[in-house]
Each structure stands twice: as C-alpha cells, then as structure tokens.
Design a binder for these strands. Sequence first.
DNA 1: TCCTTTCTGTTTTAAAGATAACATATTATA
DNA 2: TATAATATGTTATCTTTAAAACAGAAAGGA
Lengths: 215, 215
Amino acid sequence: MKKDRISNNVIRRLPMYLRKLDDLMAHGVDRISSGELGKQMGLTPSQIRQDFSCFGEFGQQGYGYRVAELREQVSRILGMHRGYTIAVVGVGNLGHALMENFGFSDQGFRLVAAFDLNPEVVGKVIQGVTVQDSAKLSSWLHDNPTDIIVLTVPRSIARSVAQTVADNGARGIWNFTNIELELDRPDVRVENIHFSDSLLTLGYFLAEQDAAENG
Amino acid sequence: MKKDRISNNVIRRLPMYLRKLDDLMAHGVDRISSGELGKQMGLTPSQIRQDFSCFGEFGQQGYGYRVAELREQVSRILGMHRGYTIAVVGVGNLGHALMENFGFSDQGFRLVAAFDLNPEVVGKVIQGVTVQDSAKLSSWLHDNPTDIIVLTVPRSIARSVAQTVADNGARGIWNFTNIELELDRPDVRVENIHFSDSLLTLGYFLAEQDAAENG
DNA sequence: TCCTTTCTGTTTTAAAGATAACATATTATA
DNA sequence: TATAATATGTTATCTTTAAAACAGAAAGGA
C-alpha cells in the first residue's frame, strides 16, 4: 500500500537499490527475489519488501521482481528522468574533479553552468561548460532558473554564496563545504557531503578498536 | 553512565558536535547549555545530554558545558589525538583535490603516502608527499603499516585494490568509488562517500516537490 | 545564608524502524 | 490438473531511537 510519508531511511536506501539493480542487469540477471536481493545487499527480505511497498507493488507473488522493471521504478521515484539542471559554483580542485569525473548525465542530471572568481579559471571549458565569472552568478541564475547548485567554494564565503543562490531560484544545494548552511528558506533543500565527518567517523572506529585492545 | 554499545546514530553526530563546538570557540563562547546547543543545532536538549552521557559526565548541573573541555572530550572520543596514518591510492582529480584541500592534519591525521599508476603523476610532490608507482603499493604497505587508505581509483579496479590494501594491513578504507566493497575481512572498516547516492537523494526531494505540485 | 533558578544525568514514556509472521497468489512439477 | 514450492504485500511484534519527565546538584541573587 502506497505511503504518504516516506521515512528518511527508506529514501537513503533507494540509491543503493538502484546501484545493485544496475549491477544485476550488467550481469544479465533479469529476475530476483527479495530473499536473494537481501542476501546480496545485507538486508532482510522483509525490509526490502517493505521499502518497495511504500511506493507501489512492483513484484509478483511466486516469481519475485523483474530487475529491469524494478530498476526503472526506482529510477523514476528518484526523479532521474526529470533532467534536473545543475550549476557548479567554485571550480577549484574539487569542483573541477566533480565536473570532469562525476557523470552528471549518467545520473539523469544536466550540467549547465559553472562559476568561479579566479580569473585563471574563468573562461575555461570543462565538459562542454564554460566557467563564468562569479560576479555574473546572480543575474545568470535569475535568467536561467537552475535546480541544483553544487557548492564547492571555500568555507569562508559558503554561507553568503548559498544565500545568493537560494535567493535566485535554486531548489537544492549540494553542499561540499564543511559547515551547516542554515538558510532562512525551508523550501531550499540542502544535501551535505561532509568529508571530515565521514573520515572522523572512520577514525572513531579505529580508536574504539585500539581502546578495546590496549586501553 | 558510560555505555558499552554506542549506536551508529550517536557516532555520526559526534563530528557535528565537534564542528559546532569549534565554531562556538571561534566566537568566544566558553560555556553553553544543552538547551542552547540544541537550539543552534536543531536537536532536542534531551538528545544532546543522552549522547554525551554515553561517554561520561562532561557537564555541570546548573552551569552547563565548558565548550573547550567538551570539545576536547569529543575530539578524544573520535581518536583525533592518535594521529592515524593515511595513504591516498589513486591520484586522479579527486585524489589530488583531497590531498591539496582536505586538511588531513587539521583533523588529526597524517598523510604519509600516495600511489598512482599513471606515469605522468608518479613522482609528483603534493603536500610534501611524493606519488609512488602503484606497483609498489603492496610492498610499501607491508613495510609501512598504514591505518587508513583513501580509495580514489576508478571503479573498475576498486575491488582488487581494496583487497590488496586490506591484505597488507590497512585498518580502514575511505571509499570514494561508487561501489559496495564487500571485503572478506570484517576487521577492516569501510567508510563510504557515495557521491551519487547523495545527489540522487537530493533529486528525490525535488521530484517529490514536483509531484506534490503537479503530479 | 537561604531560596529560587538553572541545568545536568538518568529514568520513563513514546515514536520510529526493523524483523517476523501470515494470508494469498503465482509458478513449477508430477 | 492437482499439488507442492515459492515469494509477494501486509499485518503484527519486537527492537531501537528519540523525547519527555524527573530528581538532585550547582549557581546566582536577595
């Protein structure tokens, strides 16, 4: 039965399902049961069936799930067919790396612009996109409504840039800066990649191990 | 009362506390109550007190928490004083960006080595570290036990490289490749940065918004 | 110094999340 | 065609996580 309110945990598992299903398709698997899928993903069959049942009935009793169809459903739920537009703000090492190596179009997004304030970077063409001067950011966004901003600027200007893009129609911010943005616009969604949080978590587990062994 | 088993959720919040406490210190705040901290972080005071009480009694009734002291405790819990060693494997755009811009030492880690198989990259010195040929990876790790491997190689070789480093004493893998590693070594901790999972999650929320408005 | 206020650490209660159980439908097989 | 096996979607139960309530200790003021 379709649910109205989908829990965060379920949403976070959707991309994992997508990856696994892609993987299965690449290996020529065209049907799978929740039991087998659970075994391969380290989840219980119950959880898998419950997760999918939040969005509809994608399986068939006595048969299982058709991989291609399920993959399509998950991809649709994630909005991958919508072709959301993306602009990178801050073309330093990281922003550059994302433009070059992250396959935005593979994931259903369209990289449409990039901005930086360094004159040495402005004008460069990366993946078909010309880096523009940050001074033009506001007006460009105003003229070209853009769904998602990749925020890869130094943390010192992160907050003000975030506010600027939020005030100029951005609907989501993919935040790579190491701060909590705290915008005054609840309609703008912020998704964080906190590198240091992740590494420190890893460090915690090593420290825990060390403590258990020595003290 | 100190707890034996700390839940994952609590652990994931620790780095957030650390960032907030750093922030408070930078602003000259030297004491804070769970109420005020909760307000600033979007958490309930209860949760904050419970989180800290997992590790000990860091506050003072009627007074609150001394920011510097609490920061020190959190940092200690995360093992930041232990100076875990780090080697980057895969010095492409992303690996390079991390070496240059992520402040490993600021977070208490020591960047000690880097490896790549591209001859144009091998020999380069980045942040004081000379990039070595990947052919030397196994033997080097064997001779220089390293705590954490930053895995920034192409996904095609990710699994085999991960296995290699795990078999040569790595204790943790910071995985930036878009796959689930599934090592046969439960003692090696894997911490993932799944860029696409994160962006797709953001996409989900935009799609949800769109669906609510139109259909 | 005494009393009120503040605020912690812990206990209790409630909510959320995950697992297990179940009823039912399809597939495969004899 | 009948029957056993399989596997879903849903309901019920259990576990985990978060919030609220509370008792007691320190701080601050009159």
